[in-house]
Simulated scan of single mutants.
Amino acid sequence: MNKDTELSLLSLLLPAGILDYFDVVGFDKKAIKHVLYENRLTIYLAEKKQIPSKYKDCKYKASGFMEPRIIEDYPVRDNLLSLSLKRRRWDVLQDEKWIKVSREWDEFIAQGTRVSKEFAAFLKEIH
């Protein structure tokens, strides 16, 4: 299977557009004790080295990664699905001062939660 096919399949499981900003760097599957699910599948994603567009015209440098953030997403075939997002930090020169910035993730994460927007909308609908 070629890389394009693999990415196409992954894009069906992941929140829309997330592969524009993240690379899949691994996954693991662990048995869990849960009433409905047998395993927890965790997909590890690392943010690509692309500065957020609003800082593109500034002087900047990569400043490493933040602690990964775990996001719960739709279950997949008897597996709870978690996404481990390893997000980048940047040093940006603004007004002659270096400030630390990172990308906003409101597009993928429901406000005030640790679940994907799509999954939060689904849960809200069935409630």
Score class of each variant (00 low, 15 high):
I71E: 00
E107D: 11
L83D: 03
Q50V: 15
W90M: 00
C58T: 05
R114D: 11
S63L: 10
A46E: 15
Y60I: 04
A62K: 10
L83Q: 03
W98M: 09
Y55Q: 01
V76T: 04
D78R: 12
D91N: 12
K61F: 09
K54L: 12
K97N: 09
G112V: 00
K29A: 10
S84H: 01
H34Y: 00
K117V: 13
V24Q: 01
L123M: 12
K117G: 12
K33F: 10
K3Y: 10
W98Y: 07
L9D: 07
I32P: 03
K3G: 06
I51W: 02
I99D: 04
Y21K: 11
L81H: 07
R88I: 06
A16S: 15
E118R: 15
D28W: 04
S11F: 03
R103P: 03
F122W: 06
S63G: 08
I71N: 01
G17H: 03
S8Q: 14
F122H: 08
Y37H: 00
V76W: 02
K49V: 11
V115Q: 13
E125T: 09
L83W: 00
E118T: 15
K48V: 06
F119V: 04
A110R: 05
H34V: 00
I70A: 04
D4A: 15
L41A: 01
I32A: 01
N79T: 05
M1R: 08
D91L: 13
R87C: 12
I51T: 02
L81T: 05
N39I: 07
K61S: 13
D57W: 06
M66V: 10
L13D: 06
E72T: 09
P15K: 03
E107I: 11
N79A: 05
S102F: 07
I51L: 01
A16R: 14
L41Y: 00
L36E: 14
I70Y: 06
Q50C: 12
T5L: 15
K48D: 06
E72M: 09
A121G: 11
E6Q: 14
N2Y: 04
E67R: 13
K86H: 10
L41G: 00
L80R: 03
L45R: 03
N79E: 07
R89M: 11
R88L: 10
E118D: 15
E47T: 06
